[in-house]
Design a protein around this nucleic acid. Structure first.
Lengths: 182, 182
DNA sequence: GAACTATACGGAGACACTCTCCGTTTTGCA
DNA sequence: TGCAAAACGGAGAGTGTCTCCGTATAGTTC
């Protein structure tokens, strides 16, 4: 890639990240991103064929955070319920970090053709590791995609309604209790 | 209201209901509704100032179904868990009946200014009746809005990803177990 | 049943948004 | 320095929501 192209691409992603984070996916127009990055719409669309693929690039650094968080959660001591709840809380917090991301990523969970497919694999893998670690403490037959969808659903509600952290926590507590074998 | 206006209004709602149910909220344009109802865009927008208010009118008959369903659920016998799960399943099914409705109604739960506010009150009331009926079988401190949000979140995920009924059932089972006092 | 007025109709179009085409400019290499 | 390939960016096509306003119609009054 030519130096000017690389510069423009980097600037677009940086500017778009700031806009998306604050205003959410829908509320940011591609023209707005192009203007803020001081490029023409044509340039923007050559780098990112659709608005979703731009969003995907914005979320790129994010998969790392998930893996770091699950590593941390796996090393914690304590009862299974506490460890699970701690992980689900971190997980939901990361999903709501960018407005609109939770619903989008969760909707893409079963769709390998989605632009967010790589993010989904990361999330599913993280939940799978958690399942294996907690093992017999969980209800039998629980799958990573179920956990991903449940927490994704909670995160999407929190995100859409802009709920405070304690509302999220009380919903996650219900989910965690439901996931623990009784 | 003049007779021709009433005729047009009725036809618009009828046509819009059919379109929304199949294609979902986003995929139906107001022009499309106007053409199908054989009125001009101006007429459509005089009756329904926004697309959301048209959707609200389409869902009008729906509140009755919720109240009927909760009445039925309250008369059932059996263990609390079964009764709760039966109600949550019905509730989720009604939310996913119209594509896109679950996320929209759930997002409006805490917003009295939303066009869906009346629907939200119906849902919250139904869950409140269920809470009172199950009483001590539920975890302490659970509120109608929590249940509404949890099930709304599950329904939105099911709707977005077009999941089969058994995927919905396994998620609702987790939620129901989490809601039952342990 | 004719005239009149308030009400409703409907199409042209303003505005916003996503995305494309193509003439112009810039870059990096020979 | 010259040149080909790559990238730029703006005009505009296509689609969507929603508005304005001249025209048509319903319902009332005589």
């Amino acid at each position: 890639m030519r130096a000017d192209a690389q510069r423009n691409r980097d600037r677009i992603v940086e500017v778009a990240r700031a806009l998306f984070r604050v205003k959410g996916f829908e509320a940011v127009s591609m023209d707005e991103v192009a203007k803020a990055a001081e490029v023409g719409p044509g340039t923007l669309y050559r780098h990112f064929a659709t608005k979703e693929s731009l969003y995907d690039a914005v979320l790129e650094a994010w998969a790392d955070k998930v893996n770091t968080a699950v590593d941390r959660a796996l090393t914690l001591d304590g009862p299974a319920r506490e460890r699970l709840l701690s992980w689900l809380t971190d997980y939901a917090a990361m999903l709501t970090e960018h407005k609109g991301a939770a619903a989008r990523i969760t909707a893409a969970l079963g769709d390998p053709g989605s632009p967010f497919a790589a993010k989904c694999r990361t999330y599913l893998g993280a939940n799978q590791r958690m399942i294996e670690a907690l093992d017999s403490a969980l209800r039998p037959g629980v799958e990573a995609i179920q956990i991903s969808r449940l927490v994704g659903g909670v995160a999407a509600v929190v995100d859409n309604s802009e709920l405070p952290a304690d509302a999220a926590a009380s919903m996650l507590a219900v989910v965690a209790d439901g996931l623990i074998a009784s």
